[in-house]
């Protein structure tokens, strides 16, 4: 191993070789089988019940839950500031001081997503909207997590499921 470490022999081997080998098929087959299994276990098998609401937690502590049928917010932790705009179907949660995440919900389609945030990477805004019992939205910088409340679960703390 030491003999060939970063050596011209090793580099020459790659220069002379083609970009595809027959033996690559072993790796590609293995990867494609893994992908197929992942799709079966995480996309096809999980049930996709429509959620009847969602819970929002910060640092794994539930701040509030929301029910689509009543459009009611149940606050479980009063340390956070909330602003509910019923005209535009949005809820803004101030995680600490100026840090915020703005949620938009749709009571007809039973969906929720984050539409605005002042977190550094904005990954939370790019998450798929939650439209089934297996969705999740996470904002790592703010420690905020949104999970669906599915009909068979009455306890809001249990949140979503896979």
């Amino acid at each position: 191993m030491k003999k060939e470490k970063g050596s011209t022999e090793l580099v020459s081997k790659f220069i002379e070789s083609k970009p595809f080998h027959v033996k690559d098929l072993i790796l590609y087959t293995f990867i494609l089988c893994a992908v197929a299994l992942l799709f079966v276990f995480f996309i096809i098998l999980p049930k996709t019940d429509k959620p009847n609401g969602f819970s929002v937690s910060v640092n794994n502590e539930i701040v509030f839950t929301f029910e689509f049928s009543t459009e009611q917010i149940t606050v479980l932790n009063e340390n956070y500031q909330l602003s509910h705009d019923k005209n535009h179907n949005t809820i803004t949660l101030y995680v600490d001081g100026n840090s915020y995440n703005k949620l938009s919900y749709n009571t007809n389609n039973l969906t929720v997503k984050i539409i605005d945030s002042n977190c550094p990477n904005h990954d939370c805004v790019d998450f798929f909207e939650i439209s089934s019992g297996s969705g999740v939205i996470y904002c790592l910088p703010h420690g905020l997590k949104i999970l669906p409340l599915v009909p068979i679960q009455s306890e809001p703390s249990t949140g979503g499921r896979l």
């Binding site: 995480f42 297996s134 969705g135 996470y138 420690g143 979503g160 896979l162």
Partner: peptide
């Protein structure tokens, strides 16, 4: 993050 639901994005 203790968010195992995010595994649904893995495929």
């Amino acid at each position: 993050t203790n968010t195992w639901e995010y595994l649904s994005y893995l495929p």
